[in-house]
Structures are given as structure tokens and as C-alpha cells.
Design a protein around this nucleic acid. Structure first.
Lengths: 208, 208
DNA sequence: TTCTAAATACCCCATTTACGCGATTGACAT
DNA sequence: ATGTCAATCGCGTAAATGGGGTATTTAGAA
């Protein structure tokens, strides 16, 4: 736990929300908010040279989206932490935000006191998110259902490592013909018709 | 928000912790804890026929690990929610827990009042986790670094959808020869020598 | 300015793949 | 007992792939 003042910047196009947040944060002990931007372009132009620890980023911005802006800034300033602040909590927004480097994802109805707590959590290396958001993330780890038999899964894994018919056959003491048949069945079960597509689908569905 | 009493079961080998938790939970308004098991085997034997909403699951159990037990039970009772309760927060434990269907992941130093709040969150469809745990999950979404050019990434994505040389070439108005060259370069950059392996590696490294 | 990387295009050729067909065995469920 | 499914084995062929080259243009970095 560090005890210095946390320096915050806000990127938010709604004037009222931006000003309210700025006032609340800057008026709180241990927090400073001297920079607020109404759009991503101006934030990108300024933030990399400012002494900022945490950025509150709206997702719905005019021009570049908050996600794009975050991708850009995180690349230039990897030490900067980003909290996405948004009204929507659809899966795509959440995952894209996380993929471009956001550390937290909060809904705009989060109350000010909690918001300050969450900013501190991010500053201390945590990743605050509402438990609804967390649930969506967790669900992405679950396996839907696996139509493949054990043997098929085993073979598909070997294919993903770049092995061909013969190599797989030797590895598990089968005839290459049998391996072929298994692969055919895999394709049919996954509704694909090439190795590449099979592996792609299998990974996306967490079968391998 | 539902307002019925939440029925909880505990699986925990340490007698003191188990009894303390049972007393705390069962003594709280809106919570009931009539079932506690010292190991996974006895939990598996009983839980599927009990009127339980949420299971608190220790990970370090004698015999079957809490993760194994969760996998087993979640398969039989998909509507049951599991909160992992553990001292360790290593990446593997977290991911495995989520993969087998746990909804929350809390450290044992969570204080009792918070624990009750988290149980309710799970019951209401959320996924409580400490912000440290959340951070680890979030980090797993980040991209390490991408050796591929934009064009190469574009082509690799098409390959993952099962397209061949010609189809890719037609799609982006190139000669099939050029597509082939790009693919060769992709293989070389990823240190692979087949489409299958390239796609596997690319996904694992979040390049596509 | 010089060098490098990316994107583009082409050739040859051996190997691999995908798909068409058919078949047997054993296990497990109805 | 009958049926389905997984797992095993086989053949033939047309198409696709991967590896080896070479070469031009353009844009950006050193």
C-alpha cells in the first residue's frame, strides 16, 4: 500500500459527468484530478507527458472510442492504469477493454465513494470490477460442451502441435489410416473441413 | 435480488475453520448452513441430493482436491454455485477453478462480514473475487507482443476460418503467390511449419 | 543516404491433405 | 437384442500445402 496522492485524468465527453467527477475526485484527500478531456484525441495528445497514475476512460466517446484510445495510450505508457467507466456491460466491450490493457471495468452507476476505493485498488495493483462484470469474464472460461471423444481430442491436440498423419500414428501406435478416419470424424463433428479451422474452433470452444 | 434464505454447504478439512464458518453463516439472517464436509468424497456423496444454493469449497483437501470436487459436482448440479476459498492465489489454481465452473474465488483472510456479502453476490448472479485475483485474470487477456505485420495477421485470421490460398487471394485482391509468400513469412516468424501449428501458436499468444 | 522491412509476384516439386468409398470390433444403452 | 458409437484398418485420387528459390516497389529507420 502506497500512501502518496494518486493523480487521475478523466476522459469523458459528457460535460456534466466530467465536471462532477473531477470535482469529487479532486476534492478528496489522497486524490488529485487536474486533467479532464472531452475526447480521445485531446487525451492522446496530452496524457503521455503528464504526471498521471490512473485514467478514468469513458467508452462511448465522439471520434475514437475509449477502447481505441486506451490501446493507444497503454502502448505509449504501459505503467499507466486504466479504468473503463461505462453504461454498457456487453461482453464485447468488456473483453476488448481487457485486451487493450484496461485494469478495471466499472459501470457508471458506481457511487462516488466506491469509485474512489476502486481507483485506489487499481493504484495498488488490483482490478476492481462489479461482480456482474466478473461473472461474464468467468463464464468465458467455461467449457460449453465437448462433442469429441477422448481419442479425437488427443489427436486434435497433436495436430495443433504441427504433427502430420504419420507422426500422430507413430506416437500413439496406430495406422495412419486410422488417424485419418479420426480426423475426418473430428471435422464432421466440428462442422469444418480443414485442419486450420478445426484447431481454431476447438480452441475457441476450449476443447483443446 | 431474491430475498429467500440462501442455503450453503461447506467443504473444508480444517475442523476449526469449518465449524467457525458454519456457526457464522448459520447464525446470520438470510443464511443457512446445515451441511459441512471435511473432504471431497463425502461432499460428492451427499450434496447432489441436498437443497443447497452455494458451496464454499476449500482447494487444499485431503484426497480429491477442491477443484476436482467442484468439477464433479458442477457437472451433476449445474445450477449450484461454487466459491473457492483458499490461502493460495497462484495463477494455476485460479484458472483451473474458473475452468471447472467456480463462480467466485476468495482468499481465506476475507473477513466474515464480507464473506456473507460475497455469498449473496454469487447467489444473485455475480462473481466476487478479490481485486488481486481479478488482476491476474485480466493480465491473461493482454497481448505479449506481435511479430506479425498487419497484412500477415489479416491473412492468418482468414486461414483460421478455413480459407485456402485462392480464397484468401480473391478476398483481398492479391495473387495466390503473394498469399503464399505471406504465409511462408508467418511460419518463419512464428517458428512453425504448418498452418495448424501457426494458428495454435497465434491464438495462444493472442495474435488473432 | 543507405539499409531494412513490408508487400507484392512468380516458378518448381515432393509431400500432405481431404474426401470418396467400405469394413470390423467391442462397449454401452434401450 | 438391437442399435448406436468409438475405435480401429484399408484404398485411390484430385487438390492443397510447404519448402526451395528470385525479384520489384515503397516506405520508413539508422
Amino acid at each position: 500500500m502506497k500512501n502518496e496522492t494518486i493523480h487521475i485524468a478523466i476522459v469523458e465527453d459528457d460535460n456534466e459527468i466530467r465536471q462532477t467527477l473531477t470535482l469529487i475526485i479532486d476534492g478528496s484527500k489522497g486524490f488529485s484530478c487536474k486533467y479532464a478531456f472531452p475526447d480521445g484525441e485531446s487525451a492522446i495528445a496530452s496524457i503521455e507527458n503528464l504526471p498521471i497514475d490512473v485514467v478514468l476512460m469513458d467508452i462511448d466517446l465522439p471520434g475514437k472510442s475509449g477502447i481505441e484510445v486506451t490501446r493507444h495510450l497503454k502502448q505509449k505508457c504501459p505503467q499507466l492504469d486504466f479504468i473503463m467507466l461505462t453504461v454498457q456491460s456487453d461482453d464485447d466491450s468488456i473483453f476488448e477493454s481487457l485486451c487493450v490493457g484496461a485494469s478495471g471495468y466499472l459501470l457508471k452507476d458506481t457511487n462516488p465513494a466506491d469509485l474512489l476505493v476502486h481507483i485506489k485498488e487499481v493504484y495498488d495493483g488490483g482490478s476492481p470490477m462489479s461482480s456482474q462484470v466478473a461473472r461474464r469474464i468467468i463464464n468465458s472460461f467455461r467449457i460449453i460442451d465437448n462433442p469429441l471423444s477422448d481419442r479425437e481430442t488427443e489427436i486434435l491436440k497433436m495436430l495443433s502441435k504441427g504433427m502430420n498423419y504419420k507422426e500422430v500414428a507413430n506416437e500413439i501406435f496406430l495406422s495412419p489410416h486410422t488417424v485419418k478416419t479420426h480426423i475426418k470424424n473430428i471435422y464432421s463433428k466440428l462442422h469444418v473441413n480443414s485442419r486450420a479451422e478445426a484447431i481454431y474452433k476447438a480452441i475457441k470452444q476450449k476443447l483443446i
